[in-house]
Nucleic acid binder design. Structure first.
Lengths: 171, 171
DNA sequence: CTTGGAAAGTCAATAAGGCTGACATAAACT
DNA sequence: AGTTTATGTCAGCCTTATTGACTTTCCAAG
């Protein structure tokens, strides 16, 4: 520790650049406030449909990976099957999601969005993309690359697998 | 729309660089998975103390702005006073937060962390800083700058005020 | 061909953390 | 004196999550 600045617990001198506790605290708060903004638009839309964030998450990942199984979704979302099942049931009842018995393994249910489900997914993701697009545009391409890099390193390794698997060839 | 590439709804040709729907979708998922990682460590700690995320948020912002009022906290956290009050009450009862009647305006209550509160705050924020530090280190200083820039633009303007106000002189 | 275990679905009980509405108190402002 | 502001509190409700127990269906290994 060449410098003993008071508000710093980084122990290997790397604080010289950007790892002071204050910098880290700002990063933490940035995550907090940004995530609030990030979910604000979909939340407003979901209210009109009497759904919650749980439904949004299910819809998002079924759209991303059509035909995914319940177990797969369970692993990605990190909730209990009882929680997921309640959400899935309402989505199937309301005709947004279709659950098809597996052909290879008949125990599995493969999940697909219906036309109606696709419509809601579009509405939700378009709201989110609009905000993301504005932030990207304001920040510029280099900032965007940094943004994604830091986020990737903030994920738990297990979840990062799910993140990366969705778009192997890209980048 | 000069180009009518199928998976793109950006309308002004700016997609040439990084604003394709696919890029945006990846950003959205990165936020989702990263936020999960971001809250995972504190969540584990809070479990041992029988607290939840709501308590963490209150503790964080009281620590950041000692002497802040209830109303101020209400604006930052965006919850109802009933919700906040429940959290605050348990924190005061458990001796983590002290609520002092205002001197200038006696209607206000100014909130401070006690020694015990400071201890828990440290435990929580150190866990979060450790993860953030690792992500920062792995991504590098330029990525960190971009990360923060994009997040700032993702916030709702009202909330960005609260974010910026905490550290006026910095950067 | 039987049996063990996996995938999915369901019921019940519980909890955290939000919400609205109503009301109370004290203090400041006009 | 009357109104507004800041806070606190009671009651009731909702959503999303949890754990635990149990069932049905079905694959796969012995």
């Amino acid at each position: 520790m060449a410098e003993r600045s008071p508000a710093n617990s980084a122990s290997s001198g790397e604080n010289l650049l950007f790892l002071t506790d204050e910098q880290l605290r700002r990063g933490i708060e940035a995550m907090f406030f940004a995530y609030r903004g990030f979910t604000a638009d979909p939340d407003r839309i979901l209210e009109n449909h009497a759904y919650g964030r749980a439904h949004h998450r299910a819809i998002h990942f079924i759209n991303r990976s059509p035909g995914t199984t319940v177990n797969n979704l369970l692993a990605i979302l990190g909730v209990t099957k009882q929680s997921l099942n309640r959400v899935l049931r309402t989505l199937v009842e309301d005709g947004l999601v279709e659950s098809r018995v597996g052909t290879r393994d008949k125990r599995e249910r493969h999940l697909y969005l219906t036309e109606k489900g696709i419509a809601l997914e579009r509405e939700l993701s378009e709201a989110q993309r609009t905000r993301m697009r504005a932030a990207y545009r304001a920040a510029g391409p280099e900032a965007v690359a940094g943004f994604r890099t830091v986020l990737e390193h903030m994920m738990d390794p297990d979840l990062r697998r799910h993140y990366l698997s969705a778009t192997e060839g890209e980048r």
